[in-house]
Design a protein around this nucleic acid. Structure first.
Length: 488
RNA sequence: GCUCCGUUCGUCUAGUGGCCUAGGACGCUGGCCUCUCACGCCGGAAACACGGGUUCGAAUCCCGUACGGAGUACCA
């Protein structure tokens, strides 16, 4: 089985693209796993030179690599059916177009848009699109158009009757071809259009299963008809099976649009999502591994995936749940791995330098266990640990937290805490805890939360922080005392 | 307008005619744990769009209605 992902490099890659890519990947890998052979092809649909950009192309590859959706064949990695960028396949399209033009499956069309529009108004037809005016042009009519200097485009002649296919996710779907107008295969200047390139590529790359977004559902009858023609002229061997995946929706009832910040797939990476977390969440949009389970790995998905189980109804992207699933994956990682993955975020935030100094690396190793179980996204590591790494001169406290906890009485507590730990012989978590407990809780009779709140703000700068005593141990005696003192 | 697709808790879903007084998850919410936060644990509220069939029996099959979405390009 050969499947393909065929994004067009326009704009920043969308989470809907991630979902479609994931399902294609899982489909191919599951086929491979079960001995049916599975090849995942990545092809770039950049026929529209106006809209395609190199930035977008780069971003798409970056995204696939980050996600670990490795393609067996396609751009950059090659394969026997390349090239894999449509912009480099012009000769092929021209060749097929030539053959099609010699057949009766297409005809040259000289109409201008406004003329088609005017005719429709006049006839009152309910079908939009082309009306077939040039289907049976007489030689005289054609000569007249040519004499006017008109350039023809090649239009596909939709057959009469209906077109039915067994959609992999929706079951049987039928279109009456009277509602599917003849469509253009190329521009008047000869540039091939998506309507031609996608089927030609699927045919020549021997794609067996096409899994794509629901938005392409209505172009499927045209592609199936084109495949019939390509088979007749010897360009295609078989028509692929089609499966149309439901939309990924945003807020409200709209398809997640590129304008929506939630739509940008790489933004999740930049916020510190784990690729396995995003992938897992996105898999849930239309598919379930089991009735009572929703955290799983890519490998587990590959093993269980069956396109027939995919839901046909659109799903809303829920950031909260995406984060929860991501958190679950974060919890499954060993601390060293989280450290490794958090490093780029720590560097970007300036918490550690690049390269990391030995002392910082050591401190990080000790500090990570404190926060590994508390963060939901990698970027949060930097927020939580900043206070440990910052130079004393740059250390600041959250103003709101200071106002709330370091008032008159708060400062009294901090003073007592300072004196209690200043007397310590050994600077350890246990010793610090014992000393503070003895003085603040036992002697002064404060409730623990009242006692430790001000100390926490004094030392870490925030009301919410990693565990206090451990933090003080890691900060060291000198710096801890200095911060307690500076809070007074 | 026309064509096609869709409709189970707020959201994602399980459910393929009897196991459903509809299960799980996120979110929300009550409590426990607790030096903050988070984790963890125990509880709670919350759904088969509507109307007709078919059937001994329907969330599940069929038809209609309503609602939602998409497509309707010399974009992909």
């Amino acid at each position: 089985m050969r499947v393909r992902m065929a994004p067009s490099p326009t704009g920043s890659p969308h989470v809907g693209l991630v979902r479609t890519a994931l399902f294609n990947y899982a489909f191919a890998k599951h086929a491979e796993l079960t001995g049916r052979g599975g090849t995942f092809v990545l092809r770039i649909e950049d026929t529209d030179k106006e809209r395609s950009t190199e930035e977008s192309y780069t971003a798409i590859l970056e995204l696939f690599r980050w996600l670990g959706l490795t393609w067996d064949e396609g751009v950059e990695v090659g394969g026997s059916y390349g090239p894999y960028r449509q912009s480099e396949r012009g000769d092929l399209y021209r060749d097929v177009l030539g053959k099609l033009r010699e057949s009766s499956y297409t005809y040259d069309c000289y109409c201008r848009n406004d003329e088609v529009e005017a005719r429709r108004k006049e006839s009152g037809s309910k079908v939009m699109g082309y009306d077939g005016f040039c289907r049976e042009l007489s030689p005289e009519q054609r000569d007249a158009f040519v004499a006017e200097g008109r350039e023809p485009l090649v239009r596909f002649r939709m057959p009469d009757g209906s077109i039915t296919w067994d959609d992999l996710v929706r079951g049987e779907v039928t279109f009456e071809t009277q509602f599917v107008p003849d469509f253009a295969l190329c521009r008047a200047n000869g540039d091939p259009l998506y309507t031609l390139t996608a089927p030609v590529d699927d045919a020549t790359m021997r794609i067996t299963h096409v899994l794509r977004g629901e938005d392409l559902l209505s172009s499927t009858p045209r592609q199936i008809a084109l495949f019939e023609a390509m088979r007749a002229i010897g360009v295609a061997e078989a028509t692929p099976l089609y499966g149309h995946l439901p939309y990924v929706m945003g807020e409200g009832n709209k398809k997640l649009s590129k304008r929506d910040p939630q739509a940008h797939a790489l933004a999740y990476r930049d916020q510190g999502f784990l690729p396995e977390g995003l992938l897992n969440y996105v898999a849930l949009l239309g598919w379930a591994i089991a009735a009572d389970r929703d955290v799983f790995t890519l490998e587990e998905m590959v093993e269980a995936f069956d396109i027939a189980d995919v839901n046909a109804n659109p799903a809303r992207f829920d950031l909260k749940k995406a984060e929860a699933i991501n958190t679950a994956h974060l919890r499954m990682l060993p601390v060293e791995e989280i450290t490794h993955r958090a490093l780029p975020f720590l560097k970007a935030a300036g918490v550690v330098g690049d390269p990391v100094r030995d002392a910082d690396a050591q401190l990080l190793e000790l500090a990570m266990p404190l926060v590994a179980e508390r963060v939901n996204k990698l970027a949060e590591v930097a927020d939580m640990l900043g206070f440990l790494f910052v130079d004393e001169a740059d250390f600041t406290r959250d103003e709101a937290d200071v106002a709330k906890l370091l008032d008159e009485t708060g400062r009294g507590v901090v003073k007592a805490a300072h004196d209690a730990v200043a007397a310590l012989d050994t600077w350890s978590t246990q010793a610090i805890q014992d000393a503070l407990q003895a003085t603040l809780v036992d002697e002064m009779g404060l409730k623990p939360r009242v006692a430790y709140g001000p100390v926490r703000v004094a030392v870490t700068g925030r009301r919410v922080s990693p565990p206090l005593f451990e933090s003080m141990e890691l900060l060291g005696r000198e710096r801890s005392l200095a911060r307690l003192a500076s809070a007074l």
